[in-house]
Each structure stands twice: as structure tokens, then as C-alpha cells.
Design a protein around this nucleic acid. Structure first.
Length: 490
RNA sequence: GGCGGCGUAGCCAAGUGGCUAAGGCAGAGGUCUGCAAAACCUCCAUCAUCGGUUCAAAUCCGAUCGCCGCCUCCA
């Protein structure tokens, strides 16, 4: 049973889909006027994970994530760069897709653009006007908030409080300061579409209703986005959608917490943001992904170099273990006896724990996608497997093979849902953590390592240590195992 | 001003009524090693403060302090 925290009710609730075995979900994407920052990455990773988890639980998922490609900021950017709004949008959509690909976030099933749904939006706005939920003034159309009694149910505020605390300048043409634009008359030179109210462009909120209706249904299972979208964006979506359809718009509203920097929200307006691509130039994508999933999705997460380094250390630990498993398994065939029988002779509790990992993982994920706990389970088992590996000499080889190969399978199983821990250890140590860390060509490192080994054979420890210091200086750490010397980026 | 959230070890972070408060990073001691590194073992918290409810609270209620978010574009 999957439980999800629903912003609408303020509680964790058992998830029941509208159609058994199917999940229709929509997540608000980005406004494409600039490169995306780590906050956008978090939302994308989180909802990608929600999708993956439902798939793991054998749901058929239809995931819609939109691009807002018409908006003031895009228009401004286009003006600055002397390009068309369309070109600006296309540039940043491509950049976003590239960032997502690097982060291991798969494409949504449908990635609709606002500009491709103008007729659908006009249809909804027309309907709202006809029903008295909206009114036109000078080519603009506003939603009449007072006509929708449930307004405020998501953000949990009432109209009087909002009017009292309104910091917005009051637009005289609005009947109520809280009314919001469904359609805006275009000024000369701005993108414009024909409408019953004259040439104009859509307001921000209406696109998500139109695209949700079209690609999912008038009622769908899950709608996600950042916490900052709760009000007004999602509140307005509910108002216009439900006023139009007369049906409940969305059953479960999910909102992810922010990425903070020094306890403050990372945002464009504060200017304290790092773009995804800047971060990925310094840290491997898996590090970033592990960092983002190490904290529960609803909590704030603080971005700092130290926290990224912790994530990197965690991956080192995992891949060191995986390397140990691979090294043992390499060149050894399958055991001749049945696994169950063999395992009895060595480490039943460990074997059970390994076999139980996927179930324990699911229990954690069932609880509102508790990735932090789920990852803790994995590291708990990493320690057990390491311990087992360190005692492997005294055990029956074929039994060890059974235990280690089952461990590898269990880690792959849960890792494939998280999108973590899936690489070849070799690749991780050589490429994953290497970015920007080594100030020496690989050939030269290999040369030093071999010189050092020669020195060690002579028992010339002074020379061996001298070379080790040189490598250390360059960011390379070297260590001597029974099987030979291995080097890794520090 | 209104509404909401948070405060768990040096740091990050699970845990929302009851076994020894997960896991990671850093640190200390030990095993291994030529010395190291990695790995393993051991050690390292009464949960912001105060009061209350309860047989029992980090977990529920109230107050206080501190931090943050939304109320305007924002993932």
C-alpha cells in the first residue's frame, strides 16, 4: 500500500488510483527562458522517482510534464537577445532536456508546450465566461474568484485574509484583487493568438488545466510541483478546472521542498542559484542525484560543497563494496549445489537480509517515498556485505558465490528504481568521481604507480613513499592490495 | 499582518506514542599493512527551551526562543 502526503488534505493518505493499475500524473515543468538550476533538478528528479516507483509496483503510468513557452520573461529575454520568443523557448527546452538526460531523468510520456494548446485554453476560458466564472475587460479575461466557493482549499487560506494581506497593486479593472488573468491582451510586438476577446496570449495558470484535461482527463490521480507553486498557481488551477468541469480536478497534490543555500531558498530572484550544468561540470550526475535523494522530498535540502562531498564519499563506499563483489565473482562459475542448501552452511541471517532488501526498500518507499530511509537500508547492507567480504577466505567458495551474487542482484534491483548504484565500479572510480580532481594524465599516473611498485619490490620504502606523495599531490590516492596496486582519484 | 513548515550527535539525515533514537560524513582507539589507504571491530545523542496529557513522548497539547517558506514571477 502506497501512502502519499497530499497537500490538499494535509495528511498522508493511502493511494488509490482512479483506474486500477493505472496512474495519471502531471508535474509542472519549467518556464523556458534560462538555464535550469538545481531547484528545478530536484523537482524533476523527485517526480521521475515517483513515476519509477509506481512502475516498479506494476502500475502503468502516464506522466505529463509541460513546458511553459509563452510568458513575460521569455518575451523579455527574446527582446534582450533580439530573437523570437520561439527561438528562446526552443534553446532552453533543448538545454533542459540535455540536463535531464545527464541527471538520469527520463523524458515524460508527454511533454506538451503551452503554445500548442491555445485552442484548448480558449475553449476552457469561453466555458468559464459562459458559466459566469470569468469576465472579459479590454481584451483581458479574469477568473472571478468569488464565484468559486472552494477557493483557498489547497493553500488553506480564506479570501478575507488574502485580501487583507494583499501586497499586490490592485488592478482597477479587476472586480476583486484576487481575480487572476486567464487571458491577456497582447501589446504590439508580443506573441499573439486570435481569440473571442481579441489578439492575446494565455495567462500562466490556464495552460496546466488545458494540458491536464487533454492528455490525462478532467480528473486525474497526481499533480506535482514545487512548494512555491501551491499558491497561487495550483490553487488557481483547481479553481478554473473545477469551475469548468464541475468535477474534482486532482486527487493527490504532491509538492517537493526547496533547495536552499545557506538556509535560503535557491531562486532566480535572489540570484543565489547554480545551474544544473555548472554543477554537473564539477560533480558527477550520480553524486547530484544521490544528494537530492538523501533527503525526504518534502524537506528543504541545503546545497553545499560539503554535502556533495558526503554524497561522493557514499558512492565511493558503495562502489568499493561492489568492486569487492565483482572481484570475487570474476572467473568463478555458478555453484553446483542449490543456493538454499549452500547458504545454510555460512551466513543465513545475511542471506535473508539480502533477499529481503527489495521488500524493505518497498516499505520505505510506500511511506511517502522515503528515499532517505531507503538509502539508509542500502548502506546498512553495504556494511554487512563488506564484513562478509572481509571474512570470505574461511568460507565455502560456492556458498560465497551464492551470497555475493544475490547481493549484487538485490542492489541492482533497488538501484534501478533509484537510478543509483548501477555503474561498473571501474567506471565510477575512473570517470564518475574524477571530474576536475586530477592534475595529471592517466599515462603518467600509471608510470608512477609502476615505478613505485618496482621500488616496493626492492623494499625501497623511501622511494615508494616519495612517489606516493607526488601522486597524492596530484589528487591521486594509491593503495596496495593483495591482488596488486590500485589508484583512484582522491 | 495572515497562513504553513522546521529545530534530532561536530556536520548531513531517518524516526511522529512503547524493543538498545536508522544510515552516512567527520573524529578517537584497535585489526590488517613495510608504512599507508580501503575494509572490518569498538566508541561518540535522552531529540531547541519550559510546562502539560499519558502507565509510557523526540513523537500528542500549550507557551517561549530561533530559522525558513508562501501571501508578487518562482521547482
Amino acid at each position: 500500500m502506497i501512502k502519499l502526503y497530499n497537500t490538499l488534505t494535509g495528511k498522508k493518505e493511502e493511494f488509490v488510483s482512479i483506474t486500477p493499475g493505472r496512474v495519471n500524473m502531471y508535474a509542472c515543468g519549467i518556464t523556458v527562458y534560462d538555464y535550469s538550476h538545481l531547484g528545478h533538478a530536484r523537482g524533476a528528479v523527485v517526480f521521475d522517482l515517483v513515476r519509477r516507483y509506481f512502475q516498479r509496483k506494476r502500475y502503468t503510468v502516464t506522466y505529463v510534464r509541460n513546458f511553459t513557452d509563452v510568458d513575460d520573461k521569455i518575451i523579455n529575454r527574446a527582446r534582450e537577445e533580439e530573437k523570437s520568443a520561439d527561438e528562446v523557448a526552443r534553446t532552453y527546452i533543448d538545454a533542459y532536456n540535455e540536463d535531464m538526460q545527464r541527471l538520469g531523468v527520463g523524458p515524460a510520456d508527454i511533454e506538451p508546450k503551452a503554445t500548442e494548446h491555445i485552442p484548448e485554453m480558449i475553449e476552457i476560458i469561453t466555458g468559464l465566461v459562459e458559466k459566469g466564472h470569468a469576465y472579459a475587460v479590454d481584451g483581458d479575461v479574469y477568473f472571478r474568484v468569488a464565484s468559486f466557493p472552494d477557493y483557498g482549499k489547497l493553500a488553506k487560506r480564506n479570501l478575507e485574509d488574502m485580501r487583507a494581506g494583499a501586497r499586490v497593486e490592485v488592478d482597477e479593472r479587476k472586480q476583486d484583487p484576487l481575480d487572476f488573468a486567464l487571458w491577456k491582451a497582447s501589446k504590439p510586438g508580443e506573441p499573439a493568438w486570435d481569440s473571442p476577446w481579441g489578439p492575446g496570449r494565455p495567462g500562466w495558470h490556464i495552460e496546466c488545466s488545458a494540458m491536464g484535461f487533454k492528455h490525462l482527463d478532467q480528473t486525474f490521480d497526481i499533480h506535482g510541483g514545487g512548494k512555491d507553486l501551491i499558491f497561487p498557481h495550483h490553487e488557481n488551477e483547481i479553481a478554473q478546472s473545477e469551475a469548468f468541469s464541475g468535477r474534482k480536478f486532482v486527487n493527490y497534490w504532491l509538492h517537493n521542498g526547496f533547495v536552499n543555500i545557506n538556509q535560503e531558498k535557491m531562486s532566480k530572484s535572489l540570484g543565489n542559484f547554480f545551474t544544473i550544468r555548472d554543477i554537473l561540470d564539477q560533480y558527477d550526475a550520480e553524486i547530484v542525484r544521490l544528494f537530492l535523494l538523501s533527503t525526504h522530498y518534502r524537506s528543504p535540502i541545503d546545497f553545499s560543497d560539503g554535502n556533495l562531498k558526503d554524497a561522493r564519499a557514499g558512492l565511493d563506499r558503495f562502489y568499493t563494496m561492489k568492486e569487492g563483489i565483482n572481484n570475487f565473482l570474476a572467473g568463478r562459475g555458478a555453484p553446483s549445489e542449490k543456493p538454499e542448501h549452500l547458504v545454510e552452511s555460512i551466513d543465513r541471517p545475511l542471506y535473508d537480509k539480502i533477499l529481503n532488501l527489495p521488500r524493505a526498500f518497498d516499505d520505505a518507499m510506500d511511506d511517502d517515498c522515503n528515499t532517505a530511509f531507503a538509502i539508509g537500508l542500502i548502506y546498512d547492507l553495504v556494511r554487512d556485505v563488506n564484513k562478509f567480504l572481509s571474512e570470505v577466505e574461511n568460507k565455502r567458495e560456492d556458498a560465497v558465490i551464492v551470497v555475493l551474487s544475490s547481493a549484487a542482484r538485490a542492489f541492482d534491483d533497488v538501484g534501478s528504481t533509484l537510478g543509483l548504484f548501477l555503474r561498473d565500479p571501474e567506471e565510477w572510480f575512473r570517470e564518475g568521481r574524477l571530474i576536475g580532481k586530477i592534475a595529471m594524465p592517466v599515462e603518467q599516473i600509471e608510470e608512477y604507480v609502476s615505478q613505485r611498485n618496482t621500488a616496493r619490490e626492492r623494499k625501497d620504502w623511501a622511494e615508494a613513499d616519495r612517489i606516493r606523495d607526488i601522486l597524492d599531490e596530484a589528487g591521486v590516492v594509491v593503495y596496495d592490495r593483495t591482488g596488486g596496486t590500485v589508484w583512484k582519484p582522491k
